[in-house]
Design a protein around this nucleic acid. Sequence first.
DNA 1: CCTACATCCTCTAGCGACTAGAGGTTCAAG
DNA 2: CTTGAACCTCTAGTCGCTAGAGGATGTAGG
Lengths: 138, 138
Amino acid sequence: MSLTIGELSRQAQVKVPTIRYYEQIGLLAEPSRTEGQQRRYGAGDVRRLNFIRHARELGFEVEAIRQLLSLANDPHRACGEVHEITKAHLDEVNDKIARLTALRDELEAMVACDHRKIADCRIIEVLADHGQCRHDHH
Amino acid sequence: MSLTIGELSRQAQVKVPTIRYYEQIGLLAEPSRTEGQQRRYGAGDVRRLNFIRHARELGFEVEAIRQLLSLANDPHRACGEVHEITKAHLDEVNDKIARLTALRDELEAMVACDHRKIADCRIIEVLADHGQCRHDHH
DNA sequence: CCTACATCCTCTAGCGACTAGAGGTTCAAG
DNA sequence: CTTGAACCTCTAGTCGCTAGAGGATGTAGG
């Protein structure tokens, strides 16, 4: 079983130039090639690229993924480290969620502005107000 | 009242090079200068920069902020447009929150892996599984 | 008035993580 | 054997900053 870069792209939902980029930065191993130098991939590459894509979607930086991937080669000994990376990331994610939720509430309040009553629109004001202590909160 | 770029930086919580960058890309108007070409800012700049910073923190792209700023000059007529930009952004944010929450659940499950039982650690697996529907979850 | 030195200036280059395009080659179907 | 989609390498661009070089300015203390 061998896949072209385009087929791999479709199966792993990662764009072709991005696959080549991942290879370039050493996230993805250099695949075998045809006589004419075209890349051919196997099932392992699909899995690995799925792993990468998913980790990226989850917000892991490439460097973290690189660590995870290298640790994955020896999962039994390295599990503790994987655990640590993941834990650190979890904290980050929780923080992101908290800030985005605050943001959503704010945006919702902003959008709630009925734009038939144009003069009352507060979006600009809300954005401008922050950090200015207009209502004497420090 | 006139502020140096450093004072503006402190008041608006935006780094000095970033302020100059914002000026360069036209987000911030060119300020007045001293004889020796140093920038001097006023209260309006503090407000505008606070607006920009806040909008950035909320995840608005520079282009969107540029629109908001230009619309802000005529808030009565433009409120509908401001509304639209914000609404579009809200949709995005809601989507991000949903995906991050799914991620958090996953990470939490991953971290719950007791690393004394090393062989059972599923972190790598969980990341690799996605898009492969091994456990027939959506 | 002079000196010290923090802060300012402009400029170029770099970062991460891609994305786009030019210009040419390969491969599989008809 | 021809066609044309997909492949190849390469360079350069994107966004939103950030860092550094190398020099000028402005202000506070003596």
